[in-house]
């Protein structure tokens, strides 16, 4: 390619950050072009808005027992009906979106931070440090997720903090492994070795040279973790190990509604539907992200 009208002096180039943003914007416009991913995005944004504006949207408080309104079928007054105790199910579902989003978001963020740091370090360092840490991570991974969560919550007790801690412990090894394998493919590239040859510090190499290269893989993995974390949080709630009453937890709402199914079937339908919609949305979105970033291969 021939140089076109070279300017006399260099103008400042866009920084890595603004370049990263451009890439994120690019990813968004890619998503907008895929109908299924767009549906996913819309669903996810819808639930986020619901969670943020819960006090505005919900007509009642989540644990407010409305006198004389128990066991009511959906109506204009109570769009999702009321449960056995007379609580407005619509309000409970709206408030419930806060936990089902907040806990997975926190766990995803934390396990990305921890997992990426571990993965970057062991992938770059290699040698015996890598093989020992990798082995421990593999062993942790060989305990089925829900099982470990069960054991830990049985002993630590259920609280939002406990649930987050458990899921982070479960997901950090997975993220670390994904990061590590991406690092292995860039570790011996010329630019990383050039950084070593000019005596850059470990931190600089890990976070300035390697991190941008593994970022696409991390974004894809983050979306996947988020989707699984929602799944897990809902399952824990269903097993009665989620956030404790009275705060509304979709999984627990489903479990409680099972017993009264013959009387108030709507109290089962709506939380189940909410879980289904949210998970479908997140799955469609994360699948879209995966296809976008895998195809581009080279990264942001």
């Amino acid at each position: 390619m021939a140089a076109t009208n070279p300017p006399a002096t260099p103008v400042p180039a866009p920084s890595i950050v603004s370049r990263g943003w451009r890439a994120v914007r690019g990813a968004f416009s890619e998503i907008a072009r895929r109908p299924l991913s767009l549906i996913g995005l819309v669903l996810v944004v819808f639930f986020i808005v619901l969670a943020l504006l819960a006090p505005v949207i919900a007509p009642y408080n989540f644990d407010q027992i409305i006198r004389g309104a128990a066991r009511q079928a959906p109506s204009a007054e109570h769009v999702f009906g009321t449960d056995m105790l007379g609580r407005d199910i619509f309000s409970r579902v709206v408030y419930g979106s806060r936990e089902i989003l907040a806990i997975p978001a926190a766990t995803t963020a934390l396990s990305l931070i921890f997992g990426a740091s571990i993965g970057l370090f062991i992938g770059f360092r290699g040698g015996w440090v890598d093989s020992i840490i990798s082995r421990v991570l593999d062993a942790l991974l060989s305990i089925p997720a829900l099982l470990l969560a069960l054991v830990m919550l049985a002993t630590v007790g259920s609280s939002p903090g406990g649930i987050i801690a458990v899921i982070v412990l479960l997901y950090t090894p997975i993220v670390a492994r994904v990061t590590r394998s991406s690092v292995l493919s860039v570790r011996s590239t010329g630019y990383v070795e050039a950084a070593r040859l000019r005596g850059e510090s470990l931190g600089y190499i890990l976070f300035q040279e390697l991190l941008p290269a593994v970022l696409p893989a991390l974004i894809v993995e983050g979306a996947l973790r988020f989707s699984y974390a929602i799944f897990l949080t809902a399952s824990l709630g269903f097993l009665g190990l989620g956030v404790q009453p009275p705060s509304p937890d979709w999984g627990r709402m489903v479990n409680e509604a099972r017993d009264s199914f013959r009387i108030t079937p709507w109290s089962l339908w709506f939380p189940t539907g909410a879980i289904a919609l949210l998970i479908i949305g997140v799955n469609l979105l994360s699948d879209g992200l995966r296809r976008i970033f895998r195809r581009e291969g080279q990264g942001l």
Binding site: P10, A13, I16, R19, G20, V186, T189, G190, Y191, E193, A194, L197, R198, G199, E209, P212, A213, Q298, G299, L300
Partner: peptide, 25 residues
């Protein structure tokens, strides 16, 4: 000692960080 000895790499496609301008590098 690092300054005295530098290296040119085999594969031009991975010898530059794709997120950094030539001037930065």
């Amino acid at each position: 000692e690092l300054r005295q000895m530098q290296m040119i790499f085999q594969n031009p496609n991975d010898s530059l960080n794709p997120y950094r301008t030539v001037g930065d590098a």
